[in-house]
Computed example of a mutant assay.
Amino acid sequence: MKALLSVEPGGPETLRLSELPAPVAGPGQLLVRVKACAINYPDVLIIEDKYQFKPARPFAPGGEIAGVVERVGEGVAGWSEGDRLIAMLGHGGLAEQVVVSAAAALRLPPERSFVEGSALILTYATSIHALLDRGRLQAGQILLVLGAAGGVGLAAVELGLAFGARVIGAVSSEEKAAVVRAAGAEAIVYPRGPFDKESSKALARQFKDAVGPAGADLVYDPVGGDYAEPALRATGWEGRYLVVGFPAGIPRLPLNLTLLKSCDVCGVFWGAFAARDPDANARHIETLFWLWDEGKIAPKVSRTWPLAQAGEAIAHMAARQAVGKLAVTID
């Protein structure tokens, strides 16, 4: 089978399309023919050895796939050859075949495409955990989402609206603002960083003007960098600032702001949450499938690439050019 492998630490240019022996489904496992693999920011980090997990090389990036069952391992019940599924892998998805745990596989509804299915779980599961468990979001509250046209950002926008919040999406271009407005939220366009002291104050004023005098009840920040402090300054009394990611860099926050606002800075690590509390995660996944069926959320895949060009998809993600989700299709 073909796979796009990371053979040394580095950017997408270090990836190599290679031939590997086909994997074999062991007890409790399914052998899956991959049809689509979503690209996420962890794929940028994992090939550079900057992610929390560092797989032994060579390995294929790609942690989120949709495909068809080809073989059913010993002891597996409820799955048959030809069944369509979604699975989270951590890595390994940029390959023609993968082995997944049957216990962790999710059925892909027949009316949904493989590309849609591959783009659902990571961003929406991260966002529903962030908003409900860490952010305690309630209907009528004000939610400010940074990077709101990206994968996790747009998922947070849709979920915030589904849960009855007033949602303001902050983005870096009018093109992205149009995507946020099309989803039903308000949108503001912020300038590109880095920011000096005066520019940082101006951005804080822009955020404050958008959310109103009481401040945001919840800030969802998958961007980090110089955008973080202005967003924290726009947080209201007893608000919650959610730390989701750092494509713009890891920020340093003035903690006196948390005292003055009596607000919380909350880390969001969905993968660890799902491993520590699988029952709660399963309930969230059930809610996501219901919202998907009701049309209240829907993965927005803006571009696809074939497997041989999957490095370009990762480069597109690294350049922070993604609108919605990116995916690789594998035939």
Rank of each mutant, 00 (worst) to 15 (best):
G267W: 08
S302P: 01
G239E: 06
G295M: 13
W270F: 13
Y241G: 00
G224P: 02
K325V: 05
V328H: 12
M317I: 06
P299I: 14
W270L: 01
L307H: 09
L253V: 11
V301E: 00
A274V: 01
Y220T: 01
W290L: 15
F246G: 03
A275I: 03
L326Q: 05
L288A: 07
V328Q: 03
P222T: 06
C263F: 01
R303M: 09
L255C: 02
G212A: 06
G267K: 09
K296T: 09
A310E: 07
T287I: 13
G295A: 09
E229M: 02
E229D: 04
A210G: 05
V328W: 07
A210Y: 09
G225D: 11
T258F: 14
E312M: 11
A319Q: 13
L260R: 14
G324F: 11
D293L: 05
A308W: 05
V223A: 07
W237E: 05
G239F: 10
A280L: 08
L257T: 01
H316I: 01
V328R: 03
P306S: 14
H284C: 06
T287V: 15
A322Y: 07
L255M: 14
L260M: 15
A272L: 14
D217P: 01
E312Y: 04
A234M: 00
R276H: 12
I314M: 13
F289V: 05
L242A: 08
